[in-house]
Amino acid sequence: MKEYTFFPGCSSEKNASAANMEHSVQAMCKILGIQLNEIDDWNCCSASIGYAGGGQLPRLSMSARNFALAQQQRGMTDLVATCAACWLAMREAAERIEHEPEVRADVNVALKEANLSYEGGIKTRHLVEVLIEDFGWDALRAKVKKPLTGLKVAGYVGCQTNRPFGIAGESFENPLYLDKMIEATGATAVPYPKKVACCGGALMFTEVEKSCALVRDLLQCAVDNGAEVIVTPCPVCQLNVEVYQGKINQLFGTNFNIPVVYYSQLFVLSWGGSWEDAALNQQVVPAEVLRRFA
């Protein structure tokens, strides 16, 4: 059993938009022998849109409080995130706290109000990096009990799992790990030229039509390349690409109805987990095309 400190983030809470990611991640980790120790009483990472209301210091302090709690509760154990936006916000905060003495000093003045302090040192990682670096491709392949043979999958990496930090060792323009994950389940990764294009991110809330136009192109590209399902590591991508299909069909006269799942859901299913373990009962666009493997 390998242990990590865990930051789930707001969208992974019960009854939140990425509850299906969280459920399948826990099932995946159980099969793999990973124990995720959630930071007790964590707060929001400030998300990708927090800059406008929060500015620099309030925004960075939010991550700093999580680091301080993590250190208090779990020492210097690696801190793992599953949400792209959380991971990015934490990596950014960690870098700035470590490399900018002024930021570090100011953050600690703020933290002191909560009787906390943090000087840096905890490594912030994405769960995908844990799978690749601490377990490796052979170990992931060895878990397969029901290979997803014949399933055609478009691997949609999106933005924030890929830039500005990205999964260690991958390129920004053509990261390969997601295709490799798809292939590791026995499924087929179809070519997907839109794999690192933007879904609109948080602007789906406010600029609905403009964001839907981006997602329309993402969906069309997947369909054109013969995908039966889209897979992604990012909860913002998953939400935008799955849940807005009805709206997109309305806006553009299209007829999309393609399931969008997380890599963790594919792994759990191919590793012999149940439909519920994989949280496939929590899809807004039903993933019936996966039923034959359940």
């Binding site: 620099q56 953050v107 703020a110």
Partner: peptide, 14 residues
């Protein structure tokens, strides 16, 4: 309470 105090201080410095 601590969280809110931290944010208030950070906003003041900001």
């Amino acid at each position: 309470a601590g969280f809110a105090a931290m944010i208030a201080k950070a906003q003041e410095l900001e």
